[in-house]
């Protein structure tokens, strides 16, 4: 019978906290870059000029249908050779997660913007608003409310993708856990606890999102089916 020994966890708590900090750092940076980029991509995809909308559409589809780990390896191992500069694991991870998130956010923005009826566009342009003004003052305020649940879901998804960066040796929570597990010969305890930490970060958030979703669905303001 295996004898569990959890004392390795408090002994290495500082390393785990450092890892957690690394995870949060990449998560926040990727969100801060990815979210506005998603809006820009969505607007470009909705552009009336085919020369913009078609390549951007392809770009979004490419990012959505290529596994994130491949993109991460590409940014970490291949991209530096092309630009002739070394890039750190942190930057590669942030870039990858940010552009993947941007592609998914873009589709949510697009669905939200498309869900506002044509009449509103027409009446606003009849008032003499420019396209951008119209978007900012009429369409987006309504669309964003409908997009909230989908955004939150996607943001949780982003948090769930962060462990990938352990694969390029960035010291996030998972990487630290693997490191501690190797040094202490206690992989079962360390990895189980770390899985628990991820669960405790993600589960309450998804419960909250589900609750909000139901609330918004009742008031008829959701694009999530």
């Amino acid at each position: 019978m295996y004898e569990w020994d959890f004392s390795v966890i408090p002994m290495n708590a500082d390393l785990l906290i450092m890892g957690l900090y690394g995870t949060i750092k990449v998560f926040v940076s990727a969100f801060v870059i990815g979210f506005p980029s998603g809006l820009i991509l969505a607007l470009m995809r909705l552009s009336r000029f085919k020369i913009i909308s078609i390549p951007i559409g392809l770009f979004i589809d490419f990012l959505r249908s290529t596994p994130a780990l491949i993109l991460l390896f590409w940014f970490f191992f291949a991209f530096p050779i092309i630009i002739g500069l070394m890039i750190q694991a942190f930057l590669a991870a942030t870039l990858t997660l940010a552009i993947v998130a941007a592609a998914f956010y873009a589709e949510i923005f697009r669905a939200g913007i498309n869900s506002i009826e044509r009449g509103q566009w027409e009446s606003a342009s009849a008032l003499g608003m420019t396209r951008l003004e119209l978007l900012r003052r009429v369409i987006l305020p309504q669309a964003i409310k409908r997009m909230i649940p989908a955004f939150l879901e996607r943001t949780i998804e982003l948090l769930k993708t962060t462990p990938l960066m352990a694969a390029v040796a960035y010291s996030d929570l998972l990487f630290q856990a693997m490191d501690i597990a190797q040094k202490t010969f206690r992989p079962l305890e360390v990895l189980t606890v770390v899985a628990g930490i991820y669960f405790m970060m993600i589960y309450p958030t998804s419960l909250g999102v589900r609750k909000l979703e139901r609330k918004l669905a009742k008031s008829g303001e959701s694009t999530v089916h």
Binding site: L159, K160, T161, T162, P163, L164, A166, A167, L174, A177, M178, A181, P187, L188, V190, L191, T192, V194, A195, Y198, F199, I202, Y203, S206
Partner: peptide, 16 residues
């Protein structure tokens, strides 16, 4: 399993 990232689960199944 919905709320623990897939890679963490893979690492757990392999090492733990």
């Amino acid at each position: 399993f919905r709320n623990v990232p897939a890679l963490v689960v893979i690492i757990w199944f392999f090492f733990a």
